[in-house]
């Protein structure tokens, strides 16, 4: 069945088949330099604020199920099944119970639906700066997120002029605090501009891209409705059906930067929410056991490093921001 999509996928596959050549090009060298500077700036900022960097877990009996229709990668672990981390969320909750403020540079694998290969914003293999803060609210987490983004932007602007010039990128000045729109306001904003969006689900990619172009500066979308996110985003007790969570959106049409929330840490609540996602609680044995014993409340988020690089460098596609990128359904080096 030859469709427009499959032709486009074949073209992309042809480019990626020789992705090993890319690193020799001046453009790719500049991109990876910018990425290095941005990561370094974020690390330095977090460490100055008392965060501890931990080595990220790669595999485990379960991983983050809240990954929008993507499949988890499974490996045979001595006759039993292990999952490759789709995000380290569950382990972040483990870590904050002992360390308070932590982050991982966490490599993740998500077997995304095939149609994601052409969105320009999805990778199957990517890295997140994934952080968590014990006893914090989602407002505390947002304050860290906006500060991190401005640290990265400022560091790149200050030290990568040559690279930015080569990439033809003029980085805007960004100043926290960023605007915060509730999910309801965002839906209303889109509908007023004639965009059809269904209430109750995450904002579709094309609508998010439009928002990102229209608003013109980084902004948060907060308070998603229950059902739109994973079981670990905490519901607001005073506003049932509303989650205490957020997305940070880049300007200029670059879409989502970070996604975060206050965590649900209470055993019974997690069990109830797991039912919504059709999850088998048995699979989460160790995690539920940990919750039953008790862990501190926390809040955190993850920033996709390649998406950040895409924004900083002004790239059309996120796969340009990674050495030997992997896209859904495309077999490449």
């Amino acid at each position: 069945m030859e469709t427009e999509v499959s032709v486009e996928l074949q073209r992309l596959a042809e480019v990626l088949r020789q992705s090993w050549k890319q690193v020799r090009t001046p453009k790719m060298k500049a991109i990876l330099k910018v990425q290095d500077v941005a990561c370094d700036a974020m690390r330095r900022y977090l460490k100055s604020k008392g965060f501890i960097e931990l080595l990220p877990p790669i595999i485990g009996p379960v991983t983050d199920p809240g990954i929008r229709g993507a499949k988890q990668a499974t490996i045979d672990y001595y006759g039993r099944e292990y999952k490759v981390m789709s995000s380290a969320i569950l382990y972040k909750q483990v870590a904050v119970s002992g360390l308070g403020k932590i982050f991982f540079m966490s490599p993740n694998v998500r077997l995304e639906p095939i149609d994601s290969a052409l969105t320009g914003r999805h990778l199957v293999e990517f890295v997140q700066l994934d952080l968590e803060i014990a006893e914090a609210s989602y407002f505390d987490a947002m304050a860290v997120a906006e500060q991190l983004l401005s640290e990265a932007v400022n560091a790149v602007r200050d030290t990568c002029q040559k690279e930015l010039e080569l990439l033809g990128r003029q980085l805007p000045t960004i100043k926290p605090p960023f605007k915060k729109l509730t999910y309801d306001e965002t839906i209303e904003y889109l509908r007023m501009r004639g965009v059809k969006v269904r209430y109750g689900v995450e904002i579709p990619w094309d609508a998010e891209q439009l928002l990102s172009k229209l608003i013109g500066e980084p902004f948060f979308v907060i308070d998603y409705p229950r059902g739109a996110r994973g079981f670990y985003d905490r519901e607001d007790e005073r506003r049932p059906g509303i989650l205490r969570d957020f997305d940070l959106i880049y300007p200029e049409g670059y879409g989502e930067c970070a996604s975060g929330a206050e965590r649900e840490y209470r055993y019974e609540k997690v069990l109830e929410r797991m039912k919504e996602t059709g999850e088998d609680p048995r699979k989460y044995g160790w995690y539920l056991e940990m919750l039953r014993e008790g862990i501190p409340p926390s809040a955190g988020f993850g920033i996709g490093v390649e998406r950040l690089t895409r924004y900083l460098c002004g790239l059309d596609f996120v796969w340009e921001a990674r050495l030997c990128p992997k896209l859904a359904g495309i077999y490449s080096p």
Binding site: G69, D115, G200, V201, E202, G227, G241, R273, K275, E276
Partner: peptide, 22 residues
Amino acid sequence: PGTFLPEILRGMIRMMRNNYPR
């Protein structure tokens, strides 16, 4: 048999719309 409450069912449908929009 699965365990359902109105809000669990609602959440499940929304989750499916979210994850499998097509």
